[in-house]
Amino acid sequence: MLQAALVSFFPFLMIYSAFSDLVSMTIPNKVSLALIAGFVLFAWWTGMDLETFVWHWALFAAVLVASIALFAFGHIGGGDAKLAAATVLWLGWDHALSYLFIASLIGAALTLVMMRLRGNIIPGSVEKVEWIARLYRADSGIPYGIALGAAAIVIYPQTRWMEPVFNLALPGM
């Protein structure tokens, strides 16, 4: 049961946040809160030592402060700030820089795609679908939760959370 929960909980929330940002330009607070609560539960469940647990929280605090500053200057959305902090809480110091780098690359590609999309006339067949029409508007932001979620899913299999899964799947190795 632990293995199934580890394989599904974090990735599900990352996919949910990406789709939520795509269709509504918001990442609900409940996603970040679920990630935080899930981290505490899974840290206990997998026997994470106290020192590692504290270092994960220190990283969370650092990213939260930095991302709130970016939000204050209008560079990212509030949901993005909270999601990034809650995500690195799970990934830890070993994977945080890789995560942020990959999220930046995906975010840059997403921005270029959105700029290209916004240079086109919206097709009549989708102009009545509000969330698609919003993607075409130049005054709308970039759903950066897509980049944050995708980068997290890329990095997650390399984290300590997958050790119990891989140990079960590959006995004797």
Rank of each mutant, 00 (worst) to 15 (best):
W44P: 00
L50D: 00
L33K: 05
V31T: 08
F53N: 10
P28E: 11
L59S: 07
I27Q: 10
L35F: 03
L35N: 12
L50P: 09
L70D: 05
F39Y: 15
H56N: 10
V31K: 00
G47W: 03
L70N: 06
T46H: 09
I36L: 13
L33S: 12
W45T: 13
F71V: 02
L50S: 07
I68K: 04
A34C: 15
I68C: 15
L33R: 03
F53D: 02
S67P: 00
A43D: 13
M48F: 04
T52P: 05
L33D: 10
F39Q: 01
A61D: 00
W45F: 15
L64M: 15
A69G: 06
T52K: 08
T46L: 06
D49A: 11
V65K: 01
A43V: 04
G79V: 06
G47D: 03
W57I: 07
A58E: 00
K30N: 09
T46F: 05
L59N: 04
N29G: 08
H75W: 14
I27D: 01
L70W: 12
A37K: 05
W57M: 02
W57G: 05
V63S: 04
I36P: 14
E51Q: 13
W44F: 15
W55S: 00
W44T: 01
V31D: 06
F73H: 03
G78W: 07
A43L: 12
F60N: 02
G38A: 11
F53Q: 03
L35K: 01
K30T: 13
H75V: 14
I76K: 02
A61S: 02
T52G: 07
F71G: 02
F42A: 07
A62I: 14
W55H: 07
L35I: 10
F71Q: 02
W55F: 11
F42T: 00
L33F: 14
I27M: 06
N29P: 03
L41F: 15
A62V: 14
H75I: 14
L35T: 02
G77C: 03
F73Q: 04
F71L: 13
A61T: 06
A69S: 12
E51A: 10
F60P: 08
H56G: 12
I76Q: 04
T46M: 13
T52V: 07
L33Q: 09
L33P: 07
L33C: 11
G78H: 06
P28N: 09
W57S: 05
I76N: 03
L59T: 08
A72K: 10
D49N: 15
G47R: 01
W57C: 00
F60V: 06
W57K: 01
S32K: 09
A62W: 11
A72H: 08
A61L: 13
V54L: 10
A72V: 05
V54P: 03
W55Y: 12
A66P: 00
I36R: 01
I76R: 03
V54W: 09
L41V: 15
V65H: 00
P28M: 04
N29F: 05
H75G: 13
A66S: 11
E51C: 05
S67I: 04
W55V: 00
A61E: 01
A34G: 14
G79I: 03
G77T: 10
M48R: 10
W57H: 04
L41E: 06
G77Y: 01
A43E: 12
L33E: 13
L70I: 10
V63G: 07
T46D: 04
F53I: 04
W55R: 11
G78Y: 08
V63F: 14
G78I: 11
G38P: 15
